[in-house]
Design a protein around this nucleic acid. Structure first.
Lengths: 250, 250
DNA sequence: TCCCTCAATAATGTATACATAATGTTCCGT
DNA sequence: ACGGAACATTATGTATACATTATTGAGGGA
């Protein structure tokens, strides 16, 4: 019933985009192979026009690659590609934090960020951290990063950060679930939260360089998670978009 | 005849995209107003399907904004938006330069960049600098930035830099022609070229921080140009996409 | 046996007709 | 005279038919 509602209220283009994105991330559309529009029409239920619109949008999103002779294929990413994407996002978030610090943020604007910080503190108090707490963390962490980005009050920068975070493995919370299986999980979360605390402090004191540096380091922590998760073979399935990751043997 | 060739070889989508982009940048489509698809069909000569594709791509490019009720309108940019976009590009180019420096670049890979540097040196030797020399500079400068970006050997980063440079006023050579009318023109070019020289030196010596810092400062020089050009009312028409710039009075 | 060419097939790119939703106008009621 | 509702109009979003181009297969020649 809820599905029927969605079928009517959401455009066919969006429906096709969501369905195709799922297929890409789940690996049912394999990297390197051309995506058949007719097949996509069958699987998504939309006609070719919205399917083609969705394909264009997914290309801009970075999940697809245009084939010179026409059509699109699923892009593959090396481990280096992924870590660079994370560092790229961290660099942009660093710029956002610096803008916020240098340009000044009122106490009222900083309040939601502090509340988010406190909520994460609350979550990390329980030891050991439950799986439910991990999912709550994912949501709160995403909110923290979104709020921080907005503090830059720079629409072009916000836009670019959103685009850089669109790739599932580059998003702020991309590897959090994957770390949940790691023995180092709790330490990593505590360190990440310390970064959150520091960036707020730096923005409050208008320390632009410090705010920028800590957000960059924060991203490097995510890169470390990625490495750990990739090496820890037992829980590889928790990695987002595992099917898109091109191993050295390919 | 060459036009007929283009008409056949280039897709209707690309044709529409180019035509619409021209109309946007020239100001014949005014910011804030909804773009009529039927009107676009008439002016571009393509049918509605490729026109709509072009509109989606121009939105992703950053020139258009989706209207919630449907369709698109031309986006307007404040002076702050533009300077932030330039600094954003500079930050990404800084990251590219740092990657190149830290990861190492062979002498052979650096050669094209050095040749480009020498060609600009040659150009700047003549005093005063002619208008022709300015256009040559624009091309060489664009090439320098493209080569530098590629030295990062990071496809995700290259992609993001290309996207950040897609906005005409954020591109590396965006304001060069606008400065040509300024009395400070020659000094600015000389300082910019010094930045080029330093970033090569830094990459050669694997000085990541220095390479990054100088590219950021390089972008700040462009921001200064923007300010100068906007204040120097007499040659405002040389500014790219002047029609998109939202003045304080709007 | 390998390669090149030609043809059949199936894909993408385009145009257009249709449905549906938004917008503007007119008329009626207050 | 002003506000609101209903209708007409025009816009966008979607589906589908068509044309053109790429791809794949078979067949013939070197």
């Amino acid at each position: 019933m809820a599905e029927r509602e969605v079928d009517r209220s959401v455009s066919q283009t969006v429906k096709a985009q969501l369905a195709l994105r799922d297929q890409i991330l789940s690996g049912s559309l394999r990297a390197g192979e051309r995506i058949s529009e007719l097949q996509a029409v069958e699987t998504t239920g939309a006609s070719r026009t919205p399917v083609r619109m969705a394909l264009v949008r997914l290309e801009e999103e970075g999940l697809l690659e245009a084939i010179p002779s026409g059509g699109f294929m699923v892009k593959a990413f090396s481990e280096r590609d992924i870590s660079d994407s994370i560092e790229l996002r961290g660099t942009l978030e660093g710029l956002a934090a610096r803008f916020a610090a240098e340009r000044g943020v009122s106490a009222r604007e900083l309040e939601p960020l502090k509340e988010c910080l406190a909520a994460i503190d609350e979550l990390l108090r329980q030891v050991p951290i439950s799986v439910d707490a991990f999912s709550s963390y994912v949501a709160l962490n995403a909110r923290f990063h979104a709020l921080l980005t907005e503090l830059s009050r720079s629409p072009p920068l916000i836009r670019q950060i959103d685009r850089a975070s669109a790739l599932p493995f580059a998003s702020p919370s991309g590897f959090v679930m994957a770390q949940s299986a790691l023995p180092e999980a709790q330490q990593i979360l505590i360190i990440g939260q310390e970064h959150h605390r520091v960036v707020i402090d730096a923005i409050e004191n208008r320390e632009g360089a410090r705010a920028e540096a800590v957000m960059r380091e924060h991203a490097r922590l995510a890169v470390r998670n990625l490495r750990l998760a990739l090496r820890n073979r037992t829980h590889l399935d928790l990695l987002p978009a595992l099917a898109l990751i091109r191993t050295a043997t390919d």
